[in-house]
């Protein structure tokens, strides 16, 4: 198992904190629908940093990468197919009422 230096950990932690502040600041600016996109991109970057360095995925086997890939792929299936229903419902006039 590869040993990652302490310095790397400190740098990653620092950038995560910076990104957190960035998330907050980005939310204060009115970007319309892009607010959500920006927030999610920053979150994805932070998540990737944690997976790659804190969780050592960068130095892990292909198998670990396959597991991560499968998890994300299946999450994607759950999202895309469920939303394929909700985003195309207009012809049914199926607004939620009550």
């Amino acid at each position: 198992m590869k040993v990652i230096s302490e310095t790397t950990y400190y740098i990653i932690c620092g950038s995560l904190l910076v990104f957190t502040v960035l998330t907050y600041l980005a939310a204060l600016v009115d970007l319309g629908e892009w607010n959500l996109v920006v927030a999610l991109i920053i979150a994805a970057v932070k998540g990737s940093l944690i997976i790659l360095f804190f969780m050592h995925a960068r130095y892990s086997s292909h198998l670990t990468w396959m597991v991560i890939g499968a998890a994300l792929l299946w999450l994607g299936i759950l999202f895309s197919l469920t939303l394929s229903d909700y985003l195309t419902r207009i012809p049914f006039a199926s607004v939620l009422i009550f």
Partner: peptide, 21 residues
């Protein structure tokens, strides 16, 4: 770390919806 990542997504999704308004 996994629990941490979940929070990193929860934070903007729950706390930061259109806070600029």
């Amino acid at each position: 770390h996994f629990v941490d990542i979940i929070w990193i997504f929860l934070f903007p999704l729950l706390y930061l919806i259109d806070v600029h308004k």
